[in-house]
């Protein structure tokens, strides 16, 4: 047995599947209609039963004269146009992704290299104090701080940039996935 909410959800899914653009009007209408039945003492399941189930209502709506279904031809045309122009926009999108990945990769390498060099010269500067002298150690210590600072800068750029790319992809995915993905 199906209650009112389940009925309306199933009906909306089916209306979307058949490309009905004014499905909200019908959902609202049947929601009010079922509410009236329930107010008059019917149970939620009995009300749905008396209406006749999702498939019957769907047929009624599809044969209704006020139903709006955008022409399949238009949608097909758009799909064909998009597929035919793939050789143009496909490589551009691919190139953009490759560029983004290359930037991420180079940021990883820079961050790792500067941090490793910074740590190594930092530790080395303590050895230099005893081996050669304070002035040289100070020089190396300064250089190690510069390298460490650059390492942290690149690491932060890496995190910021990869985060931005992740968010961009997520929003693009949400925008272009028409069915099945819950926001």
């Amino acid at each position: 047995m199906m209650d009112k909410t389940g009925f309306l959800i199933d009906l909306e899914k089916d209306l979307k599947k058949y490309g009905v653009s004014n499905s909200d009007d019908y959902i609202e209408y049947y929601s009010e209609y079922l509410d009236d039945l329930i107010e008059n003492g019917m149970s939620s399941e009995a009300a749905v039963n008396s209406v006749g189930g999702v498939k019957k209502i769907l047929l009624n709506i599809l044969s209704d004269e006020k139903v709006k279904i955008p022409k399949v031809k238009n949608r097909l045309q758009r799909i064909i146009l998009l597929s035919a122009s793939f050789p143009i926009w496909g490589p551009i999108v691919a190139a953009l992704y490759i560029i983004a990945l290359a930037i991420v990769f180079s940021l990883i390498i820079c961050a790792l290299a500067f941090m490793a060099a910074g740590l190594w010269t930092f530790l080395g500067s303590f050895i230099v104090i005893f081996k050669i002298g304070f002035t040289y150690a100070l020089l190396q210590f300064g250089i190690s701080l510069i390298l460490l600072g650059l390492g942290i800068l690149f690491e932060q750029f890496l995190i910021g940039f990869s985060g931005a790319i992740y968010n961009l992809n997520r929003s693009l995915f949400k925008k272009f996935s028409s069915r099945g993905i819950e926001a």
């Binding site: 002035t135 040289y136 100070l138 020089l139 210590f141 300064g142 250089i143 190690s144 701080l145 510069i146 390298l147 460490l148 600072g149 650059l150 942290i152 800068l153 932060q156």
Partner: peptide, 22 residues
């Protein structure tokens, strides 16, 4: 970011000081 820049500038200053000592 500010911390990284501070470390970088301190390092540069130390380097210049050490160079001038040399």
């Amino acid at each position: 970011l500010v911390l990284a820049l501070v470390i970088l500038v301190v390092g540069a200053v130390l380097m210049v000081i050490a160079l001038s000592l040399l």
